[in-house]
Amino acid sequence: MSDIADIIAQIEEELTWRTDELRFLRNQLSNMSNEQDKKRYRKSLVVMLYSYYEGFCKSAFQIYVNTINNAQLTRDKVNKYITTSSLHEVFLTYHNESKKSSHFNKELPDDAKLHRYSRQVEFILAMDDLWAEIVTIPENIVDTESNLKPVVLRKILYRLGFQYDAFKQHEGHINLLLERRNNVAHGAEKEGLTKEKYETIEHASLEVMNQIKKLIVDALIHKTYLRQPC
């Protein structure tokens, strides 16, 4: 595996440049004396805050995935969630209902149950080889769906073997961030945001980003992606 300090530094850098930029943009409020101008400016801050939030989450999880992929581990060495994620393309193949059994393709081309059974047999026959293959988690496992709602974050966490509701306490504020971002984008947020409302959303968003960093760093340090002894 790559040097753990370098990997942690990558994650730190992804968070640092975003928080530095956000701080710079937020500090421009001090140059404004009109409260209505400040409210309107905070609308743009919400849009940037969301982009930093989604961008960091995607980058940090992708660094985690890349680290595991680069470790050249076989599936029998990693936990069940990483194993399952690495078999994503394999499962798609065996779930493909157009894939017919070579034994009955001509005689019974429309027997869906039979062909499903045939694919299951093929999967069982391939299992020994699958366990011995090198883990490669596809990039689309970390899919923010261009709208990183709490449920989407839960899906990513679950696929990678983290506690899926780890950020439950912040989900209301994340929903508020998305709602405000979408309102700004669609022209519905005309009045702007008060200082208190914006700071509440920003605090929750940065807290989630910092906690995601901690979650991934702890997993890398303690190697929780590996299969634990029974």
Score class of each variant (00 low, 15 high):
residue 2 S to G: 07
residue 13 E to S: 10
residue 17 W to I: 10
residue 22 L to D: 04
residue 25 L to R: 07
residue 27 N to Y: 08
residue 27 N to S: 13
residue 32 M to E: 15
residue 35 E to G: 06
residue 39 K to W: 09
residue 40 R to M: 06
residue 43 K to A: 06
residue 45 L to Q: 07
residue 46 V to F: 06
residue 49 L to I: 06
residue 51 S to N: 11
residue 54 E to Y: 05
residue 63 I to P: 08
residue 65 V to I: 01
residue 69 N to R: 10
residue 73 L to E: 03
residue 81 Y to H: 12
residue 86 S to M: 00
residue 89 E to W: 12
residue 91 F to H: 04
residue 91 F to L: 06
residue 98 S to W: 09
residue 99 K to N: 11
residue 101 S to R: 07
residue 111 D to K: 07
residue 115 H to W: 05
residue 117 Y to P: 12
residue 117 Y to V: 13
residue 121 V to N: 06
residue 122 E to K: 07
residue 123 F to C: 13
residue 123 F to P: 13
residue 125 L to C: 07
residue 132 A to G: 10
residue 133 E to A: 12
residue 135 V to C: 11
residue 137 I to F: 11
residue 137 I to Y: 09
residue 140 N to R: 12
residue 145 E to Y: 06
residue 146 S to Y: 08
residue 148 L to R: 01
residue 150 P to H: 05
residue 152 V to S: 05
residue 159 R to M: 09
residue 161 G to R: 02
residue 163 Q to F: 00
residue 167 F to V: 09
residue 172 G to D: 11
residue 176 L to I: 12
residue 184 V to N: 04
residue 185 A to S: 09
residue 186 H to W: 04
residue 195 K to P: 03
residue 198 Y to I: 04
residue 199 E to Q: 05
residue 199 E to G: 03
residue 204 A to D: 00
residue 207 E to R: 05
residue 208 V to L: 03
residue 212 I to F: 08
residue 213 K to M: 01
residue 214 K to T: 15
residue 216 I to T: 02
residue 218 D to V: 07
residue 219 A to F: 02
residue 221 I to C: 04
residue 225 Y to M: 06
residue 226 L to N: 00
residue 228 Q to T: 08
